[in-house]
Amino acid sequence: MKNIEIFEKVKQENRTALLEHESKKVLRNIGVNIPPSRIITSLDDALIAAKEFGFPVVMKLMSSEVLHKTDAKAVVINIDTEEKVIETYDDFMKRFESFSIAGILIERMVNKGLELIIGTNTDSTFGPVILFGVGGVLVEAIQDVVFRMCPTTKEQALSAIDEIKAKKLLDGFRGMPKVDREELADMIVKLSKLAWEYRDNIAEMDINPVIANEDGIFPVDARIILK
């Protein structure tokens, strides 16, 4: 499905927030590298997907009634056996029986790493702006972020990366892997272009966390909110 079709579909369903799998589909469409994932609606499909991706996997409930997935215990990580896939599947089905469910997103778990954030917002003065910084659950407390106007050039993205206070973390701090700034900048540029191109549709976007580890840089959670 093309991005504009995804946006139209969400609007037709009277929603403003894309579900995670929809947001990730949008990211995949613009060439952002997403860990292997699939939306499934049956236990059989869940088991096939898990085997295909390789353990451990993560299972997340996709429902427009559950926006704060972690709070609702609708995210289970570190699923490393078939038994646990079955267990999680049954648990979700039981606990969220009365919810309207789009499916369960099953994806290969991304290893631990440095948690970053890339987000966009619509500023009343400057229109679409993009933010880059230290991500994770503490993002609003740490507030180590830098803004650029969308669309941003790679040069501007690289300078934004260089302006965060915790930039030392990107250079292999205490045994952590060194973050590929070029790849990170490319991701910022792609997202800034997305926010600019679809400025009539997209209001806000949070890619948090973006995890940088020895395998690469991966958007782990994604949220796109429409106007």
Binding site: A17, G119, T125, V129, V139, V145, F147, M205, N208, I225
Partner: peptide, 22 residues
Amino acid sequence: AGASHTAALSSNDAIVDDLLSD
């Protein structure tokens, strides 16, 4: 206070400050 962390961090002056320096 928006639905996203990005919106919550988007104070007008934080943006202005970064864009001026950029």
